[in-house]
């Protein structure tokens, strides 16, 4: 099976504003797909269209092989989602919230409900929360409860919008481990975020949205592939230039960029000439550089929340 999320020419217009402007997403089974974009670039609108909350102006959406929004009743029970922060009934406990939500739609048997709720609460680290009403939860606990709701029916696909919002660093690391764990179990993850670092650590595939257009969509490994140059760290950059004359393309403090994709060969030459070398690596573009190049003018807004 491939093509977990496929869109063709997806457009959403709000009045005269084209919030989403003809995007062709391609998320495959087994991906952890990072959906990047500045605030206001159309990420959330796209996520809402995928899940049938917002109806597209034109274009097609295929979710787990079904045409959305028509196939919603069939495919959405197999999708877990967290959209723009968690929401729950404040006067009820987390457990009751999960039970009510599970009872509100198809595909969640009441026989297994208690068992499933206990398991997901344990998974997200809320097992001991007891009967406390949700209004007494902290922001991080609510976020965990939202994740628990998304996991309740062991979905094949997780659509998560900013899942680590409101979590402390330990919480973020926990969620990352949880997602990787689920992914190893075969779950496809669609992660919408503006946190480049988060996406860089987790994702196998990246799509970048800029003002409603998908400006980039590729494997992470391809995007951050070596550029064919070697980075040399040395306290004496001038001596590197003297030794490897003509191959040095840039010097930035103690960082020297040398043409050639074999660090060992560069190292041998430098050491042979008696040049001290403190660090040596293949040059790879960071995701940040890739995204900045792709998005152009509004790129500063991508970075703003880092």
């Amino acid at each position: 099976m491939s093509g977990v999320i496929v869109t063709r020419g997806l457009v959403k217009r709000f009045g005269r504003l084209r919030a989403v402007d003809g995007i062709d997403l391609d998320v495959r089974a087994g991906d952890i797909y990072g959906f990047l974009g500045a605030n206001g670039s159309g990420k959330t609108t796209t996520v809402r269209m995928l899940l049938g909350l917002v109806l597209p102006t034109s274009g097609e959406i295929e979710l787990l092989g079904g045409r959305m929004p028509r196939a919603g009743r069939r495919v959405l029970p197999r999708v877990g989602s967290l959209i723009e922060g968690p929401a729950a009934y404040g006067h009820l406990s987390g457990r009751e919230n999960l039970a009510l939500l599970d009872a509100s739609g198809p595909g969640g048997s009441w026989r297994t409900r208690r068992q499933r709720i206990a398991e997901v609460l344990d998974q997200v680290g809320l097992a001991g929360v007891g009967r406390r009403p949700v209004k007494a939860y902290s922001l991080g606990m609510r976020q965990r409860l939202g994740l628990a709701a998304a996991l309740l029916r062991r979905p094949e696909l997780l659509v998560l919008d900013e899942p680590t919002n409101g979590l402390d660093p330990q919480g973020i690391a926990e969620v990352r481990e949880l997602l990787l764990d689920l992914h190893r179990g075969g779950t496809t993850v669609f992660l919408s975020s503006h946190l480049l670092a988060e996406v860089e650590q987790l994702c196998s595939r990246v799509g970048v949205l800029d003002r409603g257009r998908l400006v980039l969509q590729d494997q992470m490994a391809t995007l951050t592939a070596p550029t064919g140059a070697t980075v040399v760290h040395t306290p004496t950059p001038d001596r590197v230039r003297a030794t490897l004359d003509g191959r040095v393309t840039a010097i930035d403090g103690e960082r020297v960029i040398v043409r050639g994709d074999d660090p060992a060969e560069v190292n041998a030459l430098l050491v042979g000439a008696g040049v001290p070398v403190t660090g040596l690596a293949l040059q790879r573009p960071t995701l940040e550089q890739v995204v900045l190049t792709a998005t152009g003018a509004s790129s500063d807004r991508v970075e703003a929340d880092r």
Binding site: L51, L53, L76, P86, S104
Partner: peptide, 11 residues
Amino acid sequence: AGTLRYLLTRP
């Protein structure tokens, strides 16, 4: 409360 979107995507 924001619960509407979760009810509708439940679905």
